[in-house]
Design a protein around this nucleic acid. Structure first.
Lengths: 156, 156
DNA sequence: TCTTGATCTCAACAATTGTTGAGATAGTAC
DNA sequence: GTACTATCTCAACAATTGTTGAGATCAAGA
């Protein structure tokens, strides 16, 4: 099998090899619009090199807990079939960095509450802010979830 | 419907109300051993108050991206039907805090790479450490994933 | 006692994120 | 030209995390 050299489009197997994913996964992403492929006359998909970067982005986002729908939302700001410009990647990267910072902040808040609870030995006590939130605040309507923010994706 | 007062066991609907979850979710957790219930003679589940805390723990863990299987693993160190001792909660909380710290560290590492890439404008260049990892290191075999660690759960 | 809401079991369905297999076609190497 | 690998489509399956519905039973208040 001929291996592509620079500048050419890539077959699905090459994308799979370069990203470490299975061919079926690449096909799945392409079918769902996360990456774009042209077709040869015979129907084989041909990917631009930029697809590799998009797949990389998908993998990183997944690792951070984003669903494919959310990732698609992020990727929608990039031109589908063409390599994005540096400015486009940069804008998206900056937006992404902000969200990562928010996640870090949420985790730090949780960690601090945890440390506080462990430090004071209150984990089994009625007054514990973290674990017994619902015992004293059932009227709030929702367990300890408000401690973690009430964003719409809190339960996926 | 009689409302439970302190010291009594709770019906499934009360657990649902206290945790903000649907009854079906509580039943699902109970059926899968994440929480324990005794049964009345007629077959109705009765939960101890400690089940509320377990559910709270489940919700927090889910929010952090843990699967129910992983959460069950964590919870398995607690006595299933009885209220855990303070020491038991504390041990588990400490372990949990360590893992939260690891997640924070991973996110910070990612954020720093992102900031570096954005700052230097390399997001679209061949040399970019984060986005083009696979372009220069295809031999490594797995896209950009190694930048985030190679733990076994990297793709869930 | 009667009625109404809560609970029970069991099965089917749903969204997400893919994988696997069958059967057919394409493309490359020899 | 032949063989072997890659790719194609389409359908079925799988794990996870529940929800929904049917039909039956239970429990609590009036």
């Amino acid at each position: 099998m001929k291996r592509s050299t620079a500048q050419e489009t890539l077959a699905i197997g090459e994308i799979a090899e370069r990203t470490g994913l299975a061919v079926s996964a690449i096909r799945f992403y392409a079918d769902n619009g996360l990456i774009t492929a042209e077709r040869t006359e015979s129907g084989h998909r041909r990917f631009r090199r930029s697809a590799i970067r998009r797949v990389s982005f998908i993998l990183i986002c997944q690792r951070l807990g984003y669903s494919l729908a959310e990732i698609a939302e992020h990727l929608s700001s990039l031109p589908p079939g063409k390599a994005p410009t540096e400015a486009q990647w940069s804008r998206m990267g900056a937006q992404f960095a902000r969200e990562v910072n928010e996640r870090i902040a949420a985790l730090e808040q949780l960690r601090d509450k945890l440390n506080g609870c462990i430090g004071c030995g209150c984990l089994s006590l009625e007054a514990c802010q973290l674990w017994n939130a619902e015992d004293g605040a059932a009227a709030f309507g929702a367990g300890p979830r408000y401690l973690l923010g009430n964003s719409s994706d809190q339960l996926r």
